[in-house]
């Protein structure tokens, strides 16, 4: 599986994502600068966590205006896999690639902790190596991870089996405990928790590996 990580100004989990991908795939991950207008030939594009443009105005809003977004939309349109983690999820909702929006945490504070998630759906390139209903433990680290969408959208997401991860103990006020969702074509995943931080037993566990293994199995 060939992968690229997009680097926006003040992305800060870009290297973490690359490290995790390289560890899991054994191949080099390409770093793509936000001002590039073309993507290299890859199977997976990752929009990493961080504070692109300082999270000024709204998280992800200005990153969505960067040059590379056109190529990412085209990649997604062709059915290419896109993974948005944390700030990357925010960019994906701002861009319209995923529905809804991520608002300020209900507790109004940034929150960094390990949370329990249930894997809701395994019919996807991102989750097939997990068991349906499996509990995994992933860290969250965000100030604006409170997922919002109107009821009709939420019903549709649930009806289509596109709610992929749910919080077991909702840390941020997200609607229906949603932690991660898929787009309609099931090739774009956005989630607030950080799977790339849990691929090494020494630094928090290995529960994130399943996501990367699923992608490798599907896309290689």
């Amino acid at each position: 599986m060939k992968s690229a990580v997009i680097v926006f100004p003040a992305s800060n989990c870009d290297r973490d994502a690359a490290t995790a991908l390289e560890q899991m795939t054994g191949t080099k991950t390409l770093m793509v600068w936000h001002q590039d207008s073309d993507l290299p030939e890859v199977d997976l594009v990752v929009l990493p966590g961080g504070f692109s443009y300082g999270d000024y105005l709204r998280c992800g809003a200005m990153a969505n205006q960067s040059k590379i977004m056109g190529a990412i939309k085209a990649h997604a349109g062709r059915g290419g896999a896109v993974l948005g983690i944390c700030n990357g999820f925010q960019v994906l909702t701002e861009s319209g690639l995923l529905p809804g929006a991520l608002m300020r945490n209900a507790g109004l504070k940034f929150i960094c902790k390990q949370v329990g998630l249930s894997v809701e759906e395994t019919q996807s390139a991102f989750t097939r190596k997990y068991d349906k209903g499996q509990t995994i433990s992933l860290p969250v680290a965000h100030g604006e991870g409170n997922y919002y969408a109107d009821d009709a959208t939420l019903d549709r997401l649930e009806g289509d089996g596109r709610v992929m991860f749910r919080y077991q103990d909702n840390p941020n006020g997200s609607a229906r405990n949603i932690a991660g969702i898929l787009n309609e074509k099931r090739n774009v995943l956005g989630l607030m928790p950080h799977p790339e931080r849990v691929v090494d037993p020494l630094t928090g566990g290995t529960d994130g590996r399943g996501l990367f293994q699923s992608l490798i199995e599907t896309l290689s």
Partner: peptide, 9 residues
């Protein structure tokens, strides 16, 4: 519409 507001919310 394009930047200053996110009309979803």
């Amino acid at each position: 519409e394009k930047l200053l507001a996110n009309t979803v919310i």
